[in-house]
């Protein structure tokens, strides 16, 4: 099936591929480089690419001056918390829809999907007022709840598409073998579904980590995750490029790594199984 490709063609594609790849990746690379510069070097003309005085002082300063760690922890708690909560609600639902489908299952799934398409501004006002009146504004709990609900449809969908790939035969075999519903889920379904659950977890942590509508509108100093914290650099502090870069690098690095690991699942999750 495979034919050998002339080396010259291959080299040509290599050159173009790397050129385009580096171009697209450049803003991230530039941010990382700038984070190791002094503020003066950061805005120097002509720009300094590699041969400058490398320094880690921005990282120290970002942390000491602005409670960076607190916001980082907010991001962790909110993204991981909302994802786990979502999984807890979604696993039983996805199980039911995948293995005991009824005529209405499809409609329920599509309805869930349609809630994800509801633009957030459509419910901004009541959610804001409800949060204000119940003291949930600027709290981790409030934000976790909102992100759980806003990502729940995606979690259900991803799990559903994974569960559907587990042959129903195997679950029936377990039933014949005398496993109760609980044992069936614990001993048979869950071990087989672990890869799917893991990638659902990863993708949703990514989505929740980068969510930037609710986090910006419902938090202030206390519960602000990194998205909202970085936004505070939009005002005068944005002039401190090296510090902005250091804060940004810290904010995107963990999720970038997770993202690279889950790139395959991303396609399935974000297209609701329409492209595999």
């Amino acid at each position: 099936m495979a034919r050998s490709i002339p080396t010259r063609t291959r080299l040509g594609f290599t050159l173009v591929g790397w050129l385009v790849g580096l171009l697209i990746f450049f803003p991230i690379l530039w941010t990382v480089l700038t984070s190791f510069k002094s503020e003066g070097t950061a805005i120097a003309t002509p720009p300094q690419f590699l041969f400058f005085q490398w320094t880690a002082e921005n990282y120290a300063e970002v942390n000491s001056r602005s409670d960076y760690f607190k916001h980082f922890m907010n991001s962790v708690v909110i993204s991981v918390g909302s994802t786990l909560l979502g999984l807890l609600i979604a696993i039983p639902a996805a199980w039911a829809m995948a293995f005991a489908p009824t005529k209405r299952t499809k409609d329920v799934l599509l309805w869930m999907l349609s809630t994800k398409m509801l633009p957030a501004v459509g419910v901004l006002v009541p959610i804001y007022l409800l949060f204000r009146d119940t003291g949930l504004l600027d709290t981790r709990i409030g934000l976790t709840a909102v992100l759980t609900m806003s990502n729940l449809p995606i979690i259900v969908w991803m799990l559903y598409t994974y569960f559907r790939e587990i042959p129903g035969d195997i679950l029936e075999a377990a039933r014949m073998d005398g496993a109760s519903l609980a044992k069936e889920i614990v001993y048979v379904l869950t071990p087989m579904a672990v890869p799917g659950i893991a990638s659902t977890l990863l993708l949703n942590i990514i989505l929740a980590w980068n969510e930037a509508f609710w986090t910006l509108n419902l938090t202030a100093a206390k519960a602000a995750p990194l998205t909202a914290f970085i936004a505070s650099y939009s005002s005068p502090e944005g002039l401190f490029w090296a510090k902005l870069s250091a804060a940004s690098t810290l904010a995107i690095a963990p999720i970038l790594v997770l993202g690279w690991f889950s790139q395959r699942q991303l396609v399935r999750g974000l297209t609701f199984g329409a492209v595999k």
Binding site: I24, F25, P27, I28, N210, L216, I252
Partner: peptide
């Protein structure tokens, strides 16, 4: 990996990096 990286950058970071730097 380089090409898909921007998708994982939070919107506030990409906007500020582009705007300023």
């Amino acid at each position: 990996l380089m090409v898909i990286a921007p998708f994982f950058v939070m919107p506030t970071v990409s906007a500020l990096v582009w705007k300023n730097m």
